[in-house]
Design a binder for these strands. Structure first.
Lengths: 206, 206
DNA sequence: TTCATTGTTGAACGATCGTACAATAAGGGG
DNA sequence: CCCCTTATTGTACGATCGTTCAACAATGAA
């Protein structure tokens, strides 16, 4: 027979690439099918790969799920930080960029909410998932804390209770985002950002 | 042999009582084990009943889960309305009673959060669960809307954007509640209620 | 007491779950 | 070219899933 181009039945990949592809598949399957999407067969199908491969690259399924949580969390956080970085040096502009990024585009996708609530539900019962949240959630509040303290300093306000301000702002953001995801008609993204803006001005008087 | 007191192997109950007991068991099992708690075997064990009984009283498992969601949702809402009713007639006092009830006691139980996030994750993928949320969630916003409009009227403020105010207050409540459940050290319940109070005063100027 | 009603039990079914593992073959180094 | 490494496949296993259903028995009515 000819030794002409024979298509290989599969393509071998370096471990790190395949791991990343499996993580992506897990996230995508979770977004589409919710909790049921986090089964080895669903994830393998999404990745176009056979069942056994997952346990070759990860010690067990929970490990892959935890890794997907970490990746998912970091990617969204990176979006926000990128938007802030692109906003220049003015503290007020940086904060507004954060709000606009938070209430726009990928973050309002209902499937993103699906992923979040499933991850949260796992955090509540799995120490491994809780550890991921504790590790990744820290930077979250720190970014907001820095933005707020920069703003306070630029306005010469010293007496502000920063911890309470961060907690309140985080609550406002999360709550508005939640409503926006659940019912896009409840409030316009621009109005949500404006509400946050207004509240910040109220707490840190200009 | 004697026909003296023979202990029956089980006790028959009227359908409505047994249904309620199964609903209670589902909620309890969900609180304890998260998503995995919502299996017929776990629920039946929690209720001290055999596996087959669930499908005798409910057409299928999803029906029982949906019913448990409805019951869970209504009970918490009833707590808030009861607190408001006990606060008298003053709009401001009624609103504060709502806040205090929201940030206290049973509502801060981490297991309650567990139940919520699992229910939410199901709402995202199940039309049946979504229907329950749409039906039960309506009263939620209406209560807050009435409380806020009463307050605005009592203060002679007519120009307030009620929809935005309700959305904002709901966001604040949910967001603060979320943080309190996730990390009780993040803010004291009284401070959370005070933040809401302060925001309402800011939106509806006294 | 006897009988009919029906709430309740528990085994059984097929489906799907996570994991293990032997067999296969892709791809690079000699 | 062959060979070695190992990424990949796919079957198999035991456990658990939701549902079905025949048999049992608790309870009230006759």
């Amino acid at each position: 027979m000819s030794n002409a181009a024979r298509k290989p039945r599969y393509e071998r990949q370096v471990a790190s690439d395949r791991r990343e592809a499996l993580v992506d598949a897990a996230i995508e399957s979770l977004k589409r099918y919710g909790h049921d999407g986090l089964s080895v067969r669903r994830i393998a199908a999404e990745a176009g790969v056979s069942i056994g491969l997952i346990n070759h690259h990860f010690p067990n399924k929970d490990s892959l799920v935890a890794e997907s949580y970490r990746t998912f969390s970091r990617r969204l956080a990176a979006d926000f930080e990128r938007a802030v970085a692109a906003a220049g040096a003015d503290p007020r502009a940086r904060l507004r960029a954060y709000f606009d990024s938070f209430f726009s585009g990928p973050n309002l996708d209902p499937q993103v909410l699906t992923a979040w609530v499933v991850y949260w539900s796992l955090v509540q019962v799995s120490p491994e998932m809780r550890a991921v949240r504790d590790a990744e959630g820290r930077g979250y509040g720190e970014v907001l804390g820095r933005l707020l303290s920069d703003l306070a300093r630029s306005r010469g306000v010293a007496s502000v209770d920063l911890d309470t301000a961060v907690t309140g702002l985080t609550a406002f953001l999360d709550g508005l985002w939640l409503q926006l995801c659940l019912d896009p008609r409840s409030i316009r993204p621009a109005d949500a950002a404006a509400l946050c803006d207004d509240w910040v001005d109220h707490v840190i008087k200009p």
